[in-house]
Computed example of a mutant assay.
Amino acid sequence: MWKQDETGGEVEREQERWAEDKRSPSKKSGPTLPDEVAFVGKDVEFKGVITYSGTVRVDGSLEGEIHTDGGLLVGPEAVLKAKVTAGTVVCRGTIHGDIQAKDQIVLCAPAVVQGSLTTPVLSIEEGVVFNGTLEMKPQANVEVLREVGSNMGNMTSRPPVQRLAA
């Protein structure tokens, strides 16, 4: 836990960290998300269906469904038991349920995800626990692929596959 001081509380520091993650060009898989339109704090427990446009951040407990064309940020202490439909999902917490993302899913350590994922682009950091199924479908928004693809240039490439004549 962080100690609160005169420059701001733990919520402000966590928001700054998320904001820095969004702006940092050095992140390999960091999607660019719009500013948050809603925030579910870490001591909040919510049951029901959330439908919104834009980006929401969840640090608390949520049970039900989340529907958006925008982004979903799941904090490291968040626990979701939900069916998620979103444009982009960035998870550092726990999600039990199916996730369908139109643009991409980014799983950052120490995330724990149990359920099926459907997305055109998936990024998983070392230290993430994922138990479930994955279905990758073509992407409607080619711009996100270009953004993520440009960050993948540092990876060691494999030699090309050669076909042998029969």
Results as ranks from 00 to 15, higher is better:
E63D: 06
L134D: 00
R23V: 03
L33F: 02
N151Y: 01
T68A: 02
L107S: 04
V90M: 00
P138H: 05
R13I: 06
Q139C: 14
G153A: 13
G9H: 09
V37I: 15
P159N: 10
R163D: 13
T85G: 09
G149H: 00
T68D: 02
A19Y: 13
A38T: 06
K28E: 13
Q15W: 11
A165H: 13
V49L: 11
F39S: 11
Q139S: 15
P120M: 01
A19V: 02
T118H: 05
T156I: 10
E126F: 04
L145C: 00
A101Y: 03
A78G: 02
R92T: 07
R92C: 08
A101M: 08
M155F: 15
A109W: 01
D21M: 14
E77K: 03
G71N: 04
V148C: 05
G64L: 00
D35Y: 01
R23C: 04
G30R: 10
T118C: 05
D103T: 09
V128L: 01
Q4P: 04
T85A: 08
V79W: 00
G70V: 09
F39M: 11
T68C: 07
G87N: 04
Q139V: 13
D43A: 15
K102R: 14
V58A: 03
R23P: 03
M136G: 02
S123C: 11
D103Q: 09
R146D: 14
L107T: 03
E14S: 10
L72M: 04
G60H: 06
L80N: 04
E45C: 11
A82G: 05
G132H: 06
L80E: 05
G60K: 02
S116E: 13
V56M: 15
R57M: 13
E16L: 13
V112T: 12
L73A: 00
E6V: 11
G64F: 00
L117A: 01
E63G: 01
E65H: 06
V49T: 15
R17I: 07
G48Q: 08
P110I: 00
E6G: 07
G48V: 07
V106Q: 07
R92D: 08
E45A: 15
K81F: 02
V79H: 05
K83L: 07
R23Q: 10
G71L: 08
L73C: 00
A166V: 12
Q114H: 08
V49A: 10
R158Y: 07
M152V: 14
P138V: 08
S24R: 12
L122G: 05
V49S: 13
S24L: 04
G75H: 03
G153N: 10
G75A: 05
L107N: 04
L134V: 15
L117V: 03
V40S: 04
W18Q: 11
Q15T: 10
E6C: 03
V112R: 12
H67E: 14
A86Q: 01
K42R: 14
L145V: 05
E20C: 01
P76K: 13
E125A: 06
V113A: 06
Q162C: 10
G127C: 10
E126M: 06
